[in-house]
Amino acid sequence: MELEGGLKSLYFQQGEIVFATSSFSSEDLGEVLFSLGKIERDALQELRSLVNENTSLGKLLVERGVVAPKDLWLAARNQVEHIIYTLFSAHSGSFYFQALQIEQDQILRLSMKTQNIIMEGLRRLDERSLFMRKIISLDYFPLETGKDAADLTQAEARMMNLAQAGQQTARDLFRKIGLREFDGMRILFGLLEKRLIRMEDTPTTEIEGVLGQILAAYNNLFKVIFTQALKISPQFSQEVAHSLRDLPQPYSFVLRDVELQSDGTLDGHRIVANLSGLEEGDKKKLLTDSLCEVAFTATMALRRDLDAEQARPLIARVQKLTTKIREMTGGNE
Rank of each mutant, 00 (worst) to 15 (best):
F222I: 09
R180D: 12
L44W: 02
R109V: 11
K147S: 14
R270K: 15
L306P: 00
D151M: 13
L275I: 02
L306A: 04
L179Q: 04
E279S: 12
P313M: 04
L321C: 08
A311C: 11
A295I: 01
L230V: 11
R171C: 02
L130C: 03
V318L: 06
A157H: 08
G121P: 12
L321T: 10
L138Q: 09
E181Q: 14
A75K: 07
D183H: 12
D305V: 01
T21Y: 02
A301W: 01
G30C: 02
R245Y: 04
G209V: 11
L191A: 08
A217M: 09
M132E: 05
S23K: 10
L10V: 01
R326H: 11
K147A: 15
G93C: 05
Q104L: 11
D289R: 10
I135A: 05
G178Y: 05
K320I: 03
V32N: 02
R64S: 12
N116E: 15
I83G: 03
L191V: 13
P203W: 00
I214T: 05
G166C: 04
A170N: 04
A216I: 06
L191N: 07
V240C: 08
L152H: 05
E40K: 13
A149C: 12
R175I: 00
R128E: 13
S92G: 02
S237I: 12
D289V: 00
A150C: 07
T86N: 09
E293I: 00
